[in-house]
Amino acid sequence: ATTLRIASQHAPDQYASEVLRQIKTDLEGAGVDLKIKLYPAGQLGSGEQLIGEAVRGSIDIVHSFVYSHKDPVLEINSLPYLVSNYDEMEKVFSPGSNFYGIFDQRMDKMGLKLLGVTAEGFIGVMSSSMPENYQTTGSKGQNIRVWSAQSAKLATQDMGYNTTTIDWGDAFPAIQQGVVDGMIGATPEAAYTTFKEAIKNYVPYNAFVENYAYYASKKTWEKKLNEEQRKVIAEVFAKAAAGFVDWSRENDAANLKKLEEFGVKILPLTDAERSAIAKEVRAKTWPKLEERLGKDILEKVIADL
């Protein structure tokens, strides 16, 4: 049998790991002589590292965040307000969109075969104090944690926050002790599982999508697999990826509810308010990212919406 090594970043109890175990069952049961070995929970390294290992062919398939250290254009996966609701999410992250096309092409150039983009929830802002003007991009009077990326920092500032770059691992004590007033970067699920004790409210801004990708090493794809196996693998992963948008829709809602039950106030945004913020951020922040990503690329992505 052809043994494939699949590495992922997710903890074994997360939904994505469950899906991966299903993928293993599906692939091994497809009758095309495949054997799957899973390495979950970042056992084989960080997302940056996995890209290199897959290019080299020492790992066959990866489910991880796609970092832009080899190609800045890949940063389009963290464009602020690339999408702002689940319908847009479904459209943009599926094969056929301009976004997907660019992603596919850029991955191919690096030596990777894109098998699907998985959207695992929308990212909002949570804080321990009450923000001002939370329905607009007006000044919030808050200093919040951002992760270390230009797009995140610029967008969060354009949304009306002061920002401080802090590592994910240090974010909880930083909020709890008042080093910062809150943070951007967590889905409702992450907010519930990790941060609920430290926060008072959550604004579902949907500013970014927590997104990952399934990709294969092109070396594996072209040399190790036969036509039949390639077809099965492409289908199984495409089907798995497609399931993530609906799961996100439900999971985000369920966790917002859990947060509320726990005592975290969900500050409501109407669709119109969210769209207005999205529009403003696209108009203000995107031009600042143009130099890095390319004007033509941003225009193509805009055309998706």
Partner: peptide
């Protein structure tokens, strides 16, 4: 079945953390 070209790179990624 290992590719030595990636050995040291993997060490670099593992240690490329602030903590």
């Amino acid at each position: 079945d290992h590719e030595p070209a990636g050995f040291l790179t993997s060490g670099h990624w593992r240690m490329n953390v602030l903590v």
